[in-house]
């Protein structure tokens, strides 16, 4: 299996008695963008969160099945969750920088993992901000508060923060839903650049966004994975009637 690839096998997920995801199997190839689409409540965000065990934080949840990263089950024995979340970074719907300086936001992760060397930190901060296409806009104000930049810049800062710990996989939960079209376009371009180095999995409410940026698209409905495949195939000639009805706006 290629490095940075992810594979889910027969995954079931429960919130208490509620069976939220039914026997999901899906491969997310390395260095590709895979997007999840589906109406609200279909389970796509829940599924995304199973990929770095974010659901562990919610009481009463249970997972059956396996999520393999480079062949190794993240729900298996001896998995260090901190290490897992370092390998599988996450960016959320609303940009949520810490109330600290721009520099400190990006340096937070490496410092938490024990890095103290100032020169090394400077280098990581610069590289991460460059990768997130934010460096040119903030290089002269790294010490200013991260709360003072625009929404689109904040989201790119959060992406830089996620990149700073050198992940392999990046999960994004509706990363542009709170952004204007220009900031959205910047993030979308960024995703295209980032896939050279990372495997990206994104949940989006915008079908056009999924069509624009992803290599593979998976359609979820009521906790089932209805159809997945190459994005062109899903949007040009889906096989399942439910997929076709959803993407053409006949239900949802």
């Amino acid at each position: 299996m290629a490095k940075n690839s992810m594979e889910v096998k027969d995954l079931d997920f429960y919130y208490g008695d509620f069976h939220a995801l039914h026997n999901i199997s899906l491969k997310m190839p390395a260095n590709k963008v895979t997007s999840f689409i589906g109406p609200s409540g279909c389970g796509k965000s829940t599924f995304l969160r199973t990929l770095n065990r974010m659901n562990d934080l919610i009481e009463g949840t249970r997972v059956d099945g396996a999520v393999l990263i480079d062949g190794k089950n993240i729900y298996g024995e001896g998995i260090d969750i901190v290490d897992l979340r370092k390998r599988v970074g996450m960016v959320f719907q609303h940009p949520n920088p810490f109330p600290k300086s721009i520099y400190d936001n990006v340096a937070y992760g490496p410092r938490a993992h024990g890095l103290k060397d100032k020169e090394k930190l400077d280098q990581i901060v610069e590289e991460s901000l460059k990768s997130a296409a934010l460096w040119d806009e903030v290089k002269d104000k790294l010490d200013s508060s991260a709360m003072g930049i625009s929404g689109g810049q904040k989201q790119r800062l959060c992406i830089a923060r996620a990149l700073a710990v050198n992940p392999e996989i990046l999960l994004m939960d509706e990363p542009t839903s709170a952004l204007d079209p220009i900031a959205t376009a910047k993030i979308e371009d960024l995703i295209e650049d980032l896939k050279k180095d990372y495997t990206i999995v994104i949940v989006t409410h915008s079908m056009q966004q999924a069509a624009r940026i992803s290599d593979y698209t998976a359609f979820f409905y009521m906790g089932d994975l209805i159809e997945h495949g190459a994005t062109e195939k899903i949007f040009e000639k889906p096989e399942n009637q439910k997929t076709e009805d959803y993407i053409t706006g006949r239900f949802g």
Binding site: Q208, A211, F235, E236, K237, P238, E244, I247, T248
Partner: peptide, 8 residues
Amino acid sequence: QQPVAKDL
């Protein structure tokens, strides 16, 4: 309207 699939 950005139609897709059979509508497009």
